[in-house]
Design a protein around this nucleic acid. Sequence first.
RNA 1: GGCCCUAUGGUCAAGUGGUUAAGACACCGCCCUUUCACGGCGGUAACCGGGGUUCGAAUCCCCGUAGGGUCACCA
Length: 493
Amino acid sequence: MREVRLRFAPSPTGYLHIGGLRTALYNYLFAKHNNGKFILRIEDTDRTRYVEGAIENLIESLQWAGIEYDEGVFLEDGKLVQRGEYGPYIQSERLEIYRKYVDELIEKGYAYYCFCSKERLDKVREEQKIKGLIPKYDGLCRSLSLEEAKEKIANGEEYVVRLKLPPNTDIKFDDLVRGTITINTNDIDDQVLLKSDGYPTYHMAVVVDDHLMGITHIVRGEEWLSSTPKHVYLYEVFGWEKPVYVHLPTVLNKDRKKLSKRHGDVAVEDFRDKGYLPEGLINYLALVGWSPEDNEELLTMEELIEKFSFERVSKTGGIFDKDKLDWVNSHYIKNYDLDKLTDLAIPYLKEANLIDDKFAEERYDWLKVLVETVREGLSNLSEIVDKVGIFFDNEIKPENDEALSMLKMDHIPTLLSAFREELEAIDEVDEEFAKTIMKKIQKATGIKGKNLFMPVRIALTGNIHGPELTSIIYLLGKQNILNRIEYVEKQYL
RNA sequence: GGCCCUAUGGUCAAGUGGUUAAGACACCGCCCUUUCACGGCGGUAACCGGGGUUCGAAUCCCCGUAGGGUCACCA
């Protein structure tokens, strides 16, 4: 049996799209599930759309997401390197290869030179549209003899090479999620295979590369479904073994259109920057378009690999549901290794000028406690900034009138001085103190329940809601609390 | 418009001729908690329409309808 080999083959035109990540993920999961190989190939045959740095960005996003590949283009010390037996893995470095196969097609009569100008093509399409016909190449150069064509080329005329499709022929292929697809050649154009700049089009390059690289399963977006017959035809005329096709449903916006920028984030790096954990994003994304047999929804990469199959990929496009992503991600935040989570959280605190490098280093243990106490309410790490603000500002401002009025209650001065007395009796707040202080104050003042806890909370944070008082007191420490009590007494009492 | 694909709650989705049509997110209620969150329990809510086939259709077929994709020297 052939070794299972799959590839992810993006174009370096920008960032990695969230839909692209899912395609890469499904490829990866299936390859790993079958102990196969996963390959990253770069499809840069459109020189006009090439974006500097896009390949590096793509690789970094994949790496961040935890999707590893065995062959292809890698980033090492900031430089692109290629590894694997089937290289090069960047299509612009494979031009001679495509050329050779294009020549073979021409020789065998499966492709022909075409000298039609862009202007003529546009005009033909225009006229066809007016007549209500399907815009399609009219086949003018189809009848040109090879000799005539070669003569034109010798005279320096620009040309492309087109696929010569047989008329009125059904082309069938099986798709693992959609079943058998049949399309008639009358509905397909004589696709350009080789562009006038000497670069192949996607349709030529993808077939040649997938064959040469031993790709067994082609897993890609649904948008490729209707051009698959062209690829299948090429496999047939070359006499190559066809791969298994899998066309994935689209990831959609709320408006059921393809996920696009105007509705929010679509780049993998945007989610990383917002503080989504790779485990969370991957877990959620796996669930848009696929479900495991047991319907378990919280899955690690290892579990995904174990459970993944194309039989359970759905046929319908799924809306990218940020609420559910948040839920999945919050699960990972709650259970993440605390050191790792703290390391990931620190950049956000720095960015918000809550802490600096020195603070991060010297008070790392304190930061860990901080992260631990607020992690439960977070759906992504960038939200931590709002949650921890109360720990960094001793100038208490009641968040609203309700909070203010609670601070103005008659018994508050007694409460605060009792608190102060307890604090002055110790060197520093420890866990024991934090745990018992409220009871002591209650005993000393006779104030209890809501009249006790809420005013203290507001005096210490200004807010009605927040983490447990015990944690707040522990995290704040003696001096901060004394400062806050003093501030509140001066400002509000 | 031609061709191709698709159609279960607001969303993701189980379901492959016989089920009280799962589960999750979101939403609502209750409990837990002297706050919020977490957690627990419960609730609202779905088979696009019409014809067939069948003893019996969410499941099979046909016709509509709706949505998506594609019709480039872009991938």
